[in-house]
Design a protein around this nucleic acid. Structure first.
Lengths: 214, 214
DNA sequence: AGGTAACCACACCGGTCGGTATACTCGCAG
DNA sequence: CTGCGAGTATACCGACCGGTGTGGTTACCT
């Protein structure tokens, strides 16, 4: 089975740029975007605001880069869990989510970012939509069915929200149970047990892989 | 059937206080909490920061009041849709949500607020959890079953997120379809088509039908 | 008459916001 | 040797942040 890749490649950065993006990612996720100033980011990265603006041009661009990085890391985590998971692929997504949320206690970075910048024309908005769209395509591919994949996507997002904002530690397990019911009912015979397939979709569909680099 | 009320009563406010809360609610929802300063709120309400702090003490308290108001308004909207909706109660929730999201284009105020203040000890956090917990109780009551209600809750939250952050206009409809499948499968015999009798799985466990009134 | 709650106008506080400017050092490729 | 990209250090900008203080004006209640 071929799973789609998230449509972001990793940026080529100078050492200081790398430290800045790493520091910004940690701070943005843990405290929120508007709650973190560029001064703090530069200081945490052990460099200066000057370097930050030389590399990234704008705080907004740094935010967009932060989200792209999150998308790539979540994909890596997810595909690692899916690898070797047999025909119950769709359900393994919920196991991957449970493990992910054990460390990422502030929930979905994209939903959180949208809460802060949604509707403002912020460059992060496109990244947010692209990630949601990608995740849906993954679930549709795993489910082998458009409607079932869309339903699983709803459960996946609902579980993330209720786990985090709702404080319901059983949310992911409930979602998995519900998903199992849907999957079992919809296509019980489509997936023969012994088959190891790997996801081969590695098309990077962006040619502009550099940074402002001015 | 008795549905639980949201555990917030409406505050008694002076005229200027009312204007402040109304202005703050609009601004917080549309632009985010941290993006809105107290100066702007006071100016929009046609009053001064002094009055704001005399009435509410803190911006954080104003934020909590804002969320309580949102919860009450959503409950009123939801119950109005449920009223007269026959035995297909659980599905009417998704119709109410669709209508709600047609006007509330920034999605769930509680999820958005949690993205900004989650994990900081902010007084809004308790309000957020209470609202999610209340909504779950409503869905469990409507479904007449704990597991089914929890599953519907997942679909409800997932639909809200995917509609808003994901930009999927079909999210609520998909959630409704999926919910219909779950409901139909779980209790097919309890609801004879031509009958206005209510499904009896909802145990009446509270006599407090009015407002919390505490 | 006196008290008081509500309100407004305005000034002020230290701190932080995103972003810019100047000037200097280092290593490396032509 | 020179030029340049990368980095550091530091000062600065106007605007805004949440929050406080002072003083004065209504209107209503005893």
């Amino acid at each position: 089975m071929v799973l789609p890749d998230v449509p972001f490649d990793d940026p080529v950065l100078t050492p200081a740029g790398e430290r800045l993006l790493r520091a910004a990612s940690e701070l943005f996720y843990r405290r929120g975007i508007r709650a973190v100033g560029v001064d703090l980011i530069a200081e945490t990265a052990g460099t200066t605001k000057k370097t930050l603006y030389d590399r990234f041009g704008t705080k907004d661009e740094l935010v967009a880069l932060y989200l792209r990085g999150r998308a790539r890391r979540w994909q890596a985590h997810l595909f690692a869990h899916l690898h070797g998971a047999g025909p119950e692929g769709p359900l393994a997504v919920f196991d991957a989510l449970a493990a992910w949320l054990r460390e990422q206690d502030r929930g979905c970075a994209f939903v959180n970012a949208h809460a802060e910048v949604g509707g403002t024309g912020h460059p992060a908005e496109a990244v947010i939509r692209a990630e949601k769209d990608w995740m849906r395509r993954v679930l549709v591919a795993l489910a082998g069915d458009e409607r079932l994949g869309a339903a699983l996507h709803l459960l996946y997002e609902g579980a993330t929200v209720l786990h985090t904002a709702g404080g319901r530690v059983d949310a992911v397990a409930t979602a998995r149970d519900t998903a199992a019911g849907l999957v079992g009912r919809s296509a019980p015979a489509l997936l023969p047990p012994p088959a190891q397939q790997q996801h081969e979709g590695a098309q990077q569909r962006e040619e502009h892989h550099g940074l402002p680099q001015r």
